[in-house]
Amino acid sequence: MPEIALTAWQILLVKVLVILTIVPVGALAGGYAEHKVMAHLQHRLGPMYPGGFHGWATTLADGLKFLYKEDIVPDAADRKVFSLAPAAIFVPVLMIYLVIPIDRNLIVEDLDVGIFYLLAVGSISTIGVLMAGWSSANKYALIGALRSAAQLIAYELPIVLSAAVVAMYAGSLSVIDIVEKQNFPFAIWPPGIGLIAFLVFTTGAVAEMTRVPFDMPVAESEIITGPFTEYTGMRYIFSHMFAEMGHMVAFAGIGVTLFLGGYKPIIPWSPLEVVPGVIWFGLKFALMIFLFLWIRPTFPRVREDQLQKFAWKFLIPVSLVLVLAMGAWVLYV
């Protein structure tokens, strides 16, 4: 039936549009939040002028500024790879948003293998970062890219394992199922296990976003934003700013979904059900974002080898133990 086919295409179109608006808007809002929250944590005001009210249009203006900047490709760079890299970094970020349920029925695509998909897509950007660093023909970029690759691999594992713990608890890979199975937020209920899994996940997420304290790959005081040293204008925005912000927003969403009970109230109490799920999601989401923003200005960054040690010798063993514990919980409790 042509009509149905058309509708399917329309739906697809709408979905694509939604994603394509949510991500940049989310990134802009995230950027603004970062400006302001960080400023106040640091006892200053942050941007106050653009847009009038507390500088709400700062990130917008920033974006415009970057649009106007010259797009420079270094002579020695591998042009094709260099120009493709931002896309390779940014598109996977877009794809994460497909499976984050904002409310029971508000999800772009409820895949059966939701978590699987999330984690798989989430690690594709590594390739983009490597591409960017290698093709820039810059020593700092190269160091940054290699650091980045090593780090993203190291911290992917704790995230996967902690997500696996949640999946074991829920007995499903679909994100909707996972949320539905959580009577309490996961971080509260299976006591101990949930909380530790949440902390492991958060740590891994911060590392995946390459933010302080795990921002060795882009450490601007050492290797000057690493893989993105040679990027300018829009390419820089997409490969670094949007990717970082997009990742942050996405990981906050994932964290809320997997560990904080998604769109469900904070405790299973019927009067709270009146409040729409979107609001619950928004609250928890804001909390997660704030946590990320709070960590950033507080800590110094961890050295590359310490970072690797921390992942392989601490986080991964801990998450393996968590998997075991969860298995025991599922079997015997």
């Binding site: 944590l41 640091q42 006892h43 302080v212 005081s221 200005p297 507080t298 800590f299 110094p300 960054r301």
Partner: peptide
């Protein structure tokens, strides 16, 4: 070292 807050 990456901790920007003490600056401010």
């Amino acid at each position: 070292l990456g901790a920007i807050t003490p600056t401010f």
